[in-house]
């Protein structure tokens, strides 16, 4: 099942079912009316996908019942009040206000292996802000802060919360997956977002802080829908690619990730109580030669950024360069 959040022409938010390879969007609330009353189990379809995720098994069962009713009814499929062409509505990010939004740093095996690491290395990560999140076709605004680039990723949406989740139970906590581009101010990270502190014992330490270079407004285009866990292709074998206009600028596979989805969920849950709607972005893949981070200069090149995770969908975001915004 592919569940999305969309905006109707009068600006109302609604949950949609993406069908026909994402060419069509069905309004979940309306389709659910076609489910026999006994099977509705008194469920009220919310307008906000986050709410449906929080509703747990009841929400998921309702969406499934609605999809079955829809696919079995040519009348409903042809009803222009309930089913629309995908390009006739505005798709939003599937979860726009997650309780938490984790993003895994350096998870590509090649980069990870050649990096200098602590003695007992494990995943490192940072927090992104909800104000980064925009929809799959919304503008991404690139400030005037040096080269800012693309980081195509697959993101996990947590369905069932928990803490100290064992790895072999971790996938039971996944609601589904979506496509994310963790837009990053690579030049700013290198040049300005660090400080080398001198400690009272005479030692020094260089600290970098990701609060700003990862978190400008619109730095997390996401969508176009959530593919529910039961129907998702193997998240640890996904081809990830990004194009800047017609140029393929990133290419790789989550098969090359050091830490897979289950390991990440388990590791994060040892420190943080996970909650329904939490997002875990699982790490990017390297630039595709001859492209490098300094060359992938989204703001100055401009155009359209395309972000794809095969089997999970595609984002197409126009780039707007905000000259003078730092």
């Amino acid at each position: 099942m592919k569940l999305c959040q969309y905006e109707t022409n009068n600006g109302d938010k609604a949950i949609g079912l993406a069908i026909a390879d994402g060419e069509k969007i069905a309004d979940l609330k309306q389709v659910f009316q076609a489910v026999p009353t006994a099977d509705q189990a008194g469920y009220q379809v919310p307008s906000d996908l986050q709410r449906l995720i929080e509703d747990g098994p009841a929400g998921l069962a309702a969406a499934r019942a609605a999809e079955n009713a829809l696919l079995g009814s040519p009348d409903l499929l042809g009803n222009p009040e309930a089913v629309f062409a995908a390009d006739a509505v505005r798709l939003c990010a599937p979860v726009s206000r997650p309780p938490k939004f984790f993003a895994i740093a350096i998870n590509t095996r090649h980069n990870w292996e050649k990096a200098l690491k602590p003695e007992n290395p494990h995943a490192t990560y940072f927090i992104k802000l909800a104000t980064c999140i925009v929809g799959p076709h919304d503008d991404v605004h690139i400030p005037d802060i040096g080269y800012v680039g693309s980081e195509v990723e697959l993101a996990v949406i947590i369905g069932k919360g928990g803490r100290h989740i064992p790895e072999d139970k971790a996938l039971e906590h996944v609601f589904g997956y979506t496509v994310h581009n963790d837009i990053t101010a690579h030049e700013m990270r290198k040049t300005t977002e660090w400080i080398q502190v001198k400690r009272p014992d005479g030692s020094e330490e260089r600290l970098t802080y990701p609060g700003r270079y990862k978190n400008y407004d619109t730095f997390s285009p996401m969508g176009p829908w959530i593919t529910t866990a039961d129907e998702a292709p193997d998240p640890n074998k996904v081809t990830l690619r990004a194009w800047l206009n017609d140029d393929l600028v990133q290419e790789g596979s989550s098969a090359d990730h050091v830490y897979g989805v289950a390991a990440l969920i388990s590791y994060l849950s040892d420190a943080h109580t996970l909650e329904p709607g939490d997002i875990i972005s699982t790490g990017t893949v390297p630039p595709k030669p001859p492209w490098t981070h300094p060359k992938i200069d989204l703001g100055r090149i401009g155009g359209v950024l395309t972000t794809r995770a095969d089997g999970f969908g595609e984002l197409k975001n126009p780039i707007v360069f905000d000259e003078g915004v730092v």
């Binding site: 490192t124 990270r189 260089r206």
Partner: peptide, 11 residues
């Protein structure tokens, strides 16, 4: 473009 020491405060 050169070595970069990165620290991450997520945890």
């Amino acid at each position: 473009e050169g070595d970069v020491r990165l620290t991450y405060s997520g945890r």
